[in-house]
Design a protein around this nucleic acid. Structure first.
Lengths: 217, 217
DNA sequence: TCAAAAGTGTTATGATTACACCCATGT
DNA sequence: ACATGGGTGTAATCATAACACTTTTGA
């Protein structure tokens, strides 16, 4: 067995946040290096041998998007995308293979994300990102929809530790495309074991909505 | 940015088959190389730069387990396992990091798999495999349970192109741990759009069961 | 004709959806 | 008080589970 020369493994992070006013958004940052230099793309780095994959994802968010570690509430491995002839096909041979392990990175919408990050509404059209990044975003979109409310860690990262019924319903609407009936949605939250209804209320133009708090950590 | 020296990316395949008599089984093969030489483990190879990840998985099944390509009905990417100090930590430094992209590989139970492969009942205890292979098998087990009947490609690979109600019910039982009510299970299959009930019957000691056929390819 | 196993009929139970109506707040 | 939205009550609908009972085979 000869010496192995493999493509390098990169991690690319699909940044997501759920902003109370702006809704569900995907984040991109500007590429500093060729190829596609200057274009908006998913922040990514090559994985170093001394770090875990999740650490690499975290580093991508930090160094490429300039987002503080504390602002990243959740990191979730998605899928390895295997593309002939994508980035870093430096000089030669035209088409080099490349691997990208995609992560979902949920960001605190209250955190400042600086000028490096551009946020795009998830309800808009495809983002037109280079490489196969549009596919990756799409994969993430379906991942979110399939796991909302059932994957507590992910959902909690999107909503924050506590949230109003209103915000929850809007998140549901953003993820699935249909606004739930307010009444039924309230009952749905009631049924979730990890949620607790507080006595607080959250103003919203009419009758204030209840506030829900995730139990435990 | 200096030259990158990364761990090598391996693919490891969780072989699975659903044998009409023996039930759901996971397959292992004997390791030919250190570390853990001679032990049963998941077949895996280092990915080459000129092949896709799925091709690498396919090659692992072929070269390490000696299973013909045609016998592999389905290959599905699972997760990247990132383990400090696993295999191929050749000589030095004691603990090298290593990456393994796990695949689920569904094998035709009618195909001869030679002496290289050892099949273990999925209902038995943990297999006691080296590295984190037990964890990987467990991941695969949950993957199967979560997707049975909803993921047509995977389920079809397990059942074959056509199968009796009996076999389907046994598969369900093997995956979930509970034997479904025969009556309700029949109706469940009726409800699946991709399934068609044939007029054939399949003997089974009592009244013969119907045969179901997957539509399309 | 009896045992074994597959299906059908039917009902109970529970989740999901819809919608009428009442409640809590700001103006 | 009225507009705005949140929430409760309640009923219809649909899926799931349970179980009695019938059907089809082999012995």
């Amino acid at each position: 067995m000869a010496a192995w020369k493999q493509p390098l493994l990169a991690v690319d992070v699909v940044l997501v946040r759920f902003h109370p006013e702006r809704g569900l958004e995907f984040g991109t940052s500007e590429r500093a290096a060729e190829p596609a230099r200057g274009e908006q793309a998913l922040p990514g780095v090559l994985v170093r041998s001394d770090e875990s994959l999740t650490d690499a994802a975290s580093r991508a968010v930090g160094t490429k998007a300039g987002i503080a570690d504390e602002a990243v509430r959740h990191l979730d491995q998605l899928h390895v995308f295997d593309t002939p002839g994508r980035e870093d096909s430096t000089v030669e041979s035209g088409r080099e293979r490349s691997w990208s392990l995609a992560f979902l990175g949920v960001v605190d919408p209250a955190a400042a994300t600086g000028e490096h990050v551009r946020w795009h509404s998830a309800s808009g059209p495809a983002l037109g990102l280079p490489f196969d990044h549009d596919d990756i975003v799409d994969f993430a979109r379906q991942h979110i929809r399939a796991r909302l409310w059932s994957d507590v860690a992910m959902t909690r990262a999107l909503t924050g530790d506590s949230f109003s019924t209103r915000l929850g319903a809007d998140l549901e609407a953003a993820a699935t495309g249909v606004q739930p009936h307010a009444s039924n949605f309230h009952r749905r939250l009631t049924g979730l074991a990890d949620l607790e209804r507080l006595d607080e209320k959250s103003p919203s133009g009419g009758r204030p909505a209840h506030v829900w708090k995730w139990r435990r950590p």
